[in-house]
């Protein structure tokens, strides 16, 4: 396993575009997380000027709620991670190195697992960034720090990792099947923003929640804010087992299809 990890690391880290993408991802993520609270309070206070009641300003950064608030926000940037994954997966097909690796003695299973490891590494990389940012912002903005505020709701960090890993499984599947990075990124966006919403709309009841992008997005739901509480709206402030199970099923299915592809393909 460690050997496959090393192989994937060499390929990824020697590829300049990956450094740029990673850097942009980090910069965008950091500026959103650092700027979001001020932005929301500005919008809210501007809107509140004309209201009879004063709206309390929100604090997104205080622990333990910061785990939920910030992982929720960060998950909107997962398309960056999908792009990184798609580029590294389609590279192997464009350069035909997926074939050469097998000629060099890598088994078909190892080829598959090395790419699963790549998805894991990308998800871990993103989770680590989030964890550091949440901790920095949390420590700066939480009045009473205790072990409890760090641990409560830290399960959102694991949920975040799982959400990214699942989303990458779909990106991996599309990249494996179409071989072209631009095409794969386009398909992923088209499916997420057009195809699935249409199917979801056509389906009766809330069956749309069972579709992959919805299920993945449902793991970490919109955090409940003081603002929303004023309007009496309640949101899911925990991670539901149901969402994890639906997402797991899709993730396993996507990886299974790719596995079969790696086993049966004439490279």
């Amino acid at each position: 396993m460690f050997r496959l990890l090393q192989i994937e690391l060499i390929k990824a880290l020697k590829f300049k575009a990956i450094w740029w993408l990673g850097l942009v991802y980090f910069a965008v993520m950091a500026s959103i997380l650092f700027g979001v609270e001020a932005f929301i309070n500005k919008v809210v206070s501007d809107a509140g000027n004309n209201l009879p009641i004063s709206i309390p300003s929100v604090s997104l950064y205080s622990l333990p709620d910061a785990w939920h608030n910030l992982t929720y926000l960060a998950s909107f940037l997962k398309i960056f991670l999908a792009v990184i994954s798609i580029i590294l997966v389609t590279n192997e097909f464009n350069y035909k190195t997926v074939k050469q690796q097998i000629l060099n003695g890598l088994s078909r299973q190892e080829s598959f697992w090395s790419k699963v490891l790549l998805q894991l590494m990308i998800a871990l990389f993103s989770t680590a960034i989030i964890a550091v940012l949440v901790l920095i912002l949390g420590v700066l903005h939480t009045e009473e720090l205790s072990l409890g505020v760090f641990l409560t709701k830290s399960s959102f960090l694991f949920a975040y990792f799982f959400e990214i890993f699942s989303y990458l499984s779909l990106a991996f599947l599309i990249a494996t099947l179409v071989h072209r990075s631009g095409f794969a990124i386009g398909l992923l966006l088209l499916y997420g923003f057009v195809v699935e919403p249409i199917i979801s709309y056509k389906l009766p009841l809330d069956y749309g929640d069972y579709l992959p992008i919805s299920a993945i997005g449902n793991i970490i739901q919109l955090p409940n804010s003081q603002l929303m509480k004023i309007f009496g709206i309640e949101f899911q402030e925990y991670i539901a087992l149901n969402d994890l199970l639906i997402t797991s099923a899709w993730t396993i299915l996507f990886y299974a299809i790719v596995y079969v592809y790696y086993q049966k393909k004439d490279f």
């Binding site: 050997r3 090393q6 192989i7 060499i10 390929k11 020697k14 590829f15 300049k16 590279n91 350069y95 035909k96 190195t97 074939k99 050469q100 690796q101 000629l103 060099n104 003695g105 890598l106």
Partner: peptide, 27 residues
């Protein structure tokens, strides 16, 4: 078994040395 089928295939953006490191790891 060492093998070259059709044209030589390597990662174009990597040096000869880095490419061979990957091969060494695989083998």
């Amino acid at each position: 078994v060492g093998a070259i089928l059709e044209s030589p295939i390597f990662y174009p953006y990597m040096s000869a040395l880095d490419n061979l490191k990957i091969v060494a790891k695989i083998k």
